[in-house]
Design a protein around this nucleic acid. Sequence first.
DNA 1: TTGCCATAAACAGTATACTTTTATGCGTCA
DNA 2: TGACGCATAAAAGTATACTGTTTATGGCAA
Lengths: 211, 211
Amino acid sequence: MSRTSHRTRIHEALRLRLLRGEVGPDARLVDHAIAAELGVSRMPVREALMQLVSEGYLESTSRGFALPNLSPDRIAEVFTLRRLLEPHAVTCVARDRTGDDLAGMRASLEVAERAGADVASFHRGSEAFRNAWLGAVRNGELRHAIQRYSGQVQSVRFATLPDPAARLTIIGGLQALLHAFEAQDGPRAADLMLRFIYDAETAYHRIEERS
Amino acid sequence: MSRTSHRTRIHEALRLRLLRGEVGPDARLVDHAIAAELGVSRMPVREALMQLVSEGYLESTSRGFALPNLSPDRIAEVFTLRRLLEPHAVTCVARDRTGDDLAGMRASLEVAERAGADVASFHRGSEAFRNAWLGAVRNGELRHAIQRYSGQVQSVRFATLPDPAARLTIIGGLQALLHAFEAQDGPRAADLMLRFIYDAETAYHRIEERS
DNA sequence: TTGCCATAAACAGTATACTTTTATGCGTCA
DNA sequence: TGACGCATAAAAGTATACTGTTTATGGCAA
């Protein structure tokens, strides 16, 4: 027997698939199908799916679980929440970060910098960078809240990556954020994060207009 | 058959019991016991319990589900989150509130005012007031986040109520908040809420010292 | 008397089977 | 030809049973 429960492992596996954009907006996640695929019963799958629902990653429809309908209003709401939480969080990180924290961020940033046109690699790097600074948030509740609400707009984030210019902007922002952390400049980190969220929201609106 | 699922109803029922402080810190919520009590199987109960865990209301121990160990650090973390979210929320309420919203708040406040020494009645009134202004928060995600994180420290709130002086302080704060809403004075509402959270945290610390 | 081991009980986790609900498609009637 | 209704299928929801793990308690030995 594994030391973690099936539910936990399935939850993590599905969450990663969702974060990587491997689940299209029309895809339907059905418990018994996933159960058959993984060789377990429906119950742990079902519980994992419902946990993902309560975390905002999925929506329970009458015909399987699917990506939530991210209405523009809802997107705007989540961005508002991020504006309330993340600037404060990076201020704390600028104050509390250790050398290890900084090393992790540098390594992740390098991955993104070297990605070039490799969107998947860039995505991995920027995600790792985000996880690195989030890991330096000592307030566990705050960290959890941020992960929760930024996970919901992951698909939005993903949609902006194909644009090379957007990737360059992101790289620049991450570098500046890292420098603020290194200099323990909390206010600057908060400013940068506010700007970052603003840019993300703007990028989303540009994409939305095209469709 | 009821139009809502067992899981949903059980979840709500348990949540209310938790919010009312009907579950002591040593109580153990066990799925099969609750299932027997309600005349349903373990599954919906189990799912309701796990949802409460993921919402921070409960903790899964090796011996039943119990109230989470609210360490002073964790309490402080939740108060930090409330300071980030609730002032902004009441600012929005001061701007967006309708006449109906205000009427609801007035009615709830009166309940609390007339409670006198009746702690349970006071608690109902202040909870209703809180729900009234939360209902006026148009940003659903923000509202949900606030409910989530204030629910976690509900036991703390409950512990402060027996003190008559604390109740008077709360009444005064709620009246001032209502006036700010009526005057659409967002900054003042935010100030009051910050003060409110500060007072709550201070009251918690006083109680903690005694034990 | 104390410490350790064994056994039993309690509980989380998982599996399987059954029920209810809902959506879609097909057929019939107007 | 279009609309309404019924039938069928798919998936959520629920129930029951079984398994593995942890914990507590009692007994035995040192």
